[in-house]
Design a protein around this nucleic acid. Structure first.
Length: 232
DNA sequence: GACTGATCATAT
DNA sequence: ATATGATCAGTC
């Protein structure tokens, strides 16, 4: 295997097949090799570069850069998610989906939600992520193109509706990460001083920590396991 | 050792 | 401040 080169960001893929083919070609390489191919310097660790792997793979795969609230491959309707896994292919972290809207939610529905939009089609790329393993040695795994099946969508919908109900009813500050079976709501902020508008218990405007929707590990673990036939 | 709450970098 | 990319780390 010759080490891939990506000295300039790849062009956007034209279709899913092309995207999947590109992602498959990265499987087996470690992060030192992929960083070199991109002309990037490997950080010592991810403490101050938490999104580094995701951005590196975006470059190789031709994801549209930027901070727009759209899928990574909007033209073909695919979202890219790198997911850190242990030696058995089991997730080491929850998966961030999107920021949760805390105001202006009257009349919102699952069908038009950002969670459903982002998760409609996902290219999962597992990456070895055990903290004791040097970044340079961590290998990229085989990709998986996934859409939620009927049961998964029903679970996501139920959790989303329950969490959104609580947000609309002014209970956001009483929601913990324990709510939801597969989808949870947790802080998503630069730090504890970052505040955003929300609805209080009496319906009044309040300021609270920004929140995000995250997929719990059991959910992503099972969808990966179902495909790769590893233990679950 | 797992999990929840907290946090880091960057672009707009 | 809010969006993107996520992982860290204290506490249970």
């Amino acid at each position: 295997m010759t080490v891939p080169s990506c000295l300039a960001p790849a062009p956007a893929p034209t279709n899913e097949t092309e995207l999947f083919y590109r992602a498959s070609a990265l499987a087996g390489f470690n992060l030192a090799e992929l960083a070199q191919g991109a002309g990037w310097v490997l950080p010592a660790n991810l403490k101050r570069d938490k999104g580094w792997i995701g951005v590196l793979l975006e470059r190789y795969l031709g994801a549209s850069a930027g901070s727009k609230p759209v899928q990574d491959f909007a033209d073909i309707g695919v979202e890219l998610k790198t997911i850190p896994v242990d030696r058995n292919g089991w997730p080491l972290e929850t998966t961030f989906v999107c920021v949760a809207p805390l105001t202006g939610n009257s009349g919102v529905t699952w069908e038009t939600s950002h969670v459903r939009y982002k998760l409609a089609r996902v290219l999962w790329i597992p990456v070895e992520g055990e903290r004791g393993m040097p970044l340079a040695e961590r290998r990229v795994g085989s990709p998986l193109l996934w859409s939620p099946d009927a049961e998964e969508e029903a679970q996501l919908r139920q959790d989303w509706e329950e969490l959104m109900d609580l947000i609309v009813l002014g209970q956001v500050e009483h929601i913990t990460a324990r709510h939801g079976e597969v989808l949870q709501l947790r802080p998503k902020a630069a730090n504890g001083r970052a505040l955003t508008a929300a609805v209080g218990e009496q319906g009044q405007p309040i300021l609270t920590l920004p929140r995000g929707f995250y997929l719990k590990k059991a959910f992503t673990g099972h969808l990966l396991a179902r495909h790769f036939m590893v233990q679950s």
